[in-house]
Design a protein around this nucleic acid. Structure first.
Lengths: 145, 145
DNA sequence: ATTCATTGTGAAGTCAGTTCACTATGTTCT
DNA sequence: AGAACATAGTGAACTGACTTCACAATGAAT
């Protein structure tokens, strides 16, 4: 019945809130916020990147990227280096501390995953993941990176 | 394997992001944001409420409630009336337009639920809901209202 | 050499939300 | 009744994330 759908949706929504809060808290305890954490993860995945590209990946204005990088640089997690061939552009890359921080974030993510889903029945978990995948697939049309 | 847990967690995370964006967009199209929408829903559920109580329900400062109510009153969705017995307090309640808006929100929520989960296999959906419930239960200790 | 496009940043603004100080009212205690 | 204390709401000022606009420096195209 439609009721089941509604209940599931509400639960998902509630979980969204909780997950978000939990993540914010965790990041905050490590001197980060979601936007800056995302920068670190992107740089960890792609290596050094020009600010302009970063702004497209993150879907924020170039101006805001300047601010994000300023902060992260002050914290010692990223560093700006001149672009080898384009003197307008700036390459942003992780420092050693930044790399360590990104690695740590992956570790904490795995830890959180275990804490949240670790004791779910394996078969149920598989179904759970399947449903999530299905929904995400159908949504795929909007907003892929 | 732990990998399944991680994959599921990532998918869940991704979905929550999308859900949040989608909700924001939908609310925005109707002149609302999450905080103000929450006010409307609370008033719809509980009837007129004193601002102080509202601040506790929403977990924001009383000062911020003043602002939220100011805006919603300008938009014609809530109205302040004097508290019958306590002249310091103000009762905030939905106007007719506000009630209509809240009802509309419930309709749109049901619509969204169908759009997101409507074509999931019923048995899978049940498992999905169960897992969500399990996770929420275990998290229950923190932050109930 | 000129024109046009692109990168990054200063200056200023918006929006959600907070803290602090203060007024008005309610409650309690003698 | 009066003093002392608690509570409800709001002005003023601030923080933090993010935007728009204008502009200087550089690069690409004609």
């Amino acid at each position: 019945m439609s009721d089941e759908v509604l209940t599931a949706f509400d639960a998902l929504f509630e979980l969204t809130t909780r997950l978000g809060e939990s993540m914010r808290a965790d990041l905050g305890a490590h001197g980060l916020n979601p936007a800056r954490a995302e920068v670190l993860l992107v740089l960890h995945r792609r290596g050094p990147v020009v600010q302009r590209e970063l702004s497209q990946i993150l879907r924020v204005t170039p101006r805001h990227v300047t601010g994000l990088v300023d902060t992260l640089a002050e914290q010692g997690w990223v560093a700006r280096t001149p672009h080898p061939s384009d003197r307008r552009a700036v390459l942003v890359g992780l420092t050693d501390a930044g790399t360590a921080q990104a690695t740590e974030m992956h570790r904490r993510r795995a830890e959180a995953a275990r804490a949240w889903l670790g004791d779910v029945d394996p078969a149920d978990l598989t179904t759970f993941r399947t449903v999530l995948g299905q929904v995400l697939d159908r949504l795929g049309s909007s907003g892929e990176r």
